[in-house]
Structures are given as structure tokens and as C-alpha cells.
Amino acid sequence: MNEAMWALKRICSERDGRLGLTFTIAILAFALLGPLVSPDPNVLDIKARFAAPGLAHLLGTDNLGRDLLARTSVGTRYALTLAVLIVVISSVIGSLIGIVAGIAGGWVDRAVTAVFDIVNAFPPLILAFALIALYGKGSATFVLLVTVVFIPQFGRMARARARTLRNLSFIEAERMLAVHPVTIVVRHYLPNVAGPIIVLASMNLPVVIAFEASLSFLGFGVQPPKSSLGTLIKDGFVSINQSWWPTVTAALVLAVATLGATLLGEALRRVIDPKSAGAR
């Protein structure tokens, strides 16, 4: 807890950190509180199609008269939930695989590294299309797909760190005491791998948010009537001649969400891992 407070203070002590934190809190508040102050995002009000922002609809309406505040808020909530879910799953799985590979060495390490290389060899969007073709569209496919794409990133970092730790005296001392290997991994590897993994996770959050929006924009992500930032931008783009606000609103929220998460991630990296931040 003390370490978390210390990190928070350090983040707040710099401009980019403050900005990232402010944007992130604003986006979180928007995602959580938006539906409370706006109507059902799927209620149609054909008479109010393309209504401009006003008292009845704070951010206006879309081509079917649906409230854009509600839809953007729900879309943001959806994007954040998916991003956190994916980053947590891929970081946990990737870290464990990486640590095991780093400790085991030999053919296990070579096999894991080869699989990571193969996954990394595919551009994420191409891999996405291939997996969607195999498993169909939907949230579950999306989570599976992006998790698969991100596991190697976390795995590589955890593997590299584990290989360094493996030869350090305190790990050798634990081995010499015949402490159970699982205890060594949980108590001594994980806490020492966690720092860079947390930084990488925070840096990947905006990437996942943008990736989800991209796939939804292309029609491979969230399916109607659910709303996502990507579908909102696409739907708004189709009718941009009649109203510009649906696209601009969703794009603005996407920009603030990704910018906030990026700035916060960078600030966190400077706090937790100043050496790598300085080496950029």
C-alpha cells in the first residue's frame, strides 16, 4: 500500500503523469457514470434523428435517434472492460509461461521462444482476421484473439527477467535451501518480475483500446445493437454530412482514453523502471 501511495505521489509530481491520471479518471468516470444520467443506449427516437447536442440529449443523437452520451459511455465502458480483461489475462499467462521458460532453459525455453516468434510474425490485424474467420465474430473471439497477440509480449519480458534472476545469489540461496520450486516462483520470481510487467500492462492498455476500436470500425468487433467506440465512429462517419458530432464525440473519447492511458503508463514506467525509461 505504501509503495502504491509512493508511486501515486511520484506520478502526480510530474506534468505528464498528472495529465494522464486526470484523463484516465475522467474517462473512468464517464464510463461509470454516463449511463446513470442518460437513457437506455438502445432506445430509438426516430423523431430525434441527428439531434444536435442539447438539454434532451447532452451529446446529441445518432442516425436512429439513439442517445449518443449513453452509447458513447457504454462503448467506453465496453472498451475499458475488454482492455483490462485482456491485459490482465495475457499478463498473467504470459508471465507464468515466460518465467517457466526462463527458469527451465534448454528445449523448453527454445520451444516457448519459437512459439512467441511465430505469433509475433503475424501482423495483429491479419491474425485477427484469421481467428475471426475460424471462430466467428464476437466478444469472446476478440478477447481470445487479443490475448493470444499480447501473451508473447509479456512472456518475453518475464522470460528475460527470469533468466537474469535465475543466476542471482538470492535465487541460488533459495535453491540451496531446497525451498519448493513453486514457492520460489511465487515468492521470489513473481514480485521481482511484477514491476516491468505492470509497466508493460499499463502501456498496452491504450493499444488494446485502439485495437478494439479498429476491429469494431472494420465490422469485426462488437456487433449491433451493442455500441463500441469503433462502431460509433464508423456509423457517424457514414452520415458525417448530416451530423459531425457522433464521429467527433466518439473519436474524442477514444483519443482521451488512449492518450490518458499512454501518459499514465509512461509515468508509471518512469517511476517503477526509471532505467528503461531513461534509455529510450
Partner: peptide, 30 residues
């Protein structure tokens, strides 16, 4: 482990940095 134990050259480095000394000693008990 019950027969031979090392004292490493850099003893500070031989103590896990994110564990309290009590935890490290309890591991021996386990």
C-alpha cells in the same frame, strides 16, 4: 540442503529483496 549450506560472497544479494527476513527464515522451517 540439510548437510551443506553456502554463505555467498555478497550476502545482501543472497537475501530475496522483496521478502522480510522473517519470511526467509520461515521458509527454512517449512
Amino acid at each position: 540442503a540439510r548437510v551443506v549450506q553456502p554463505i555467498f560472497q555478497d550476502p545482501a544479494a543472497s537475501l530475496s529483496p522483496r521478502s522480510r527476513i522473517r519470511t526467509l527464515m520461515n521458509e527454512v522451517g517449512t
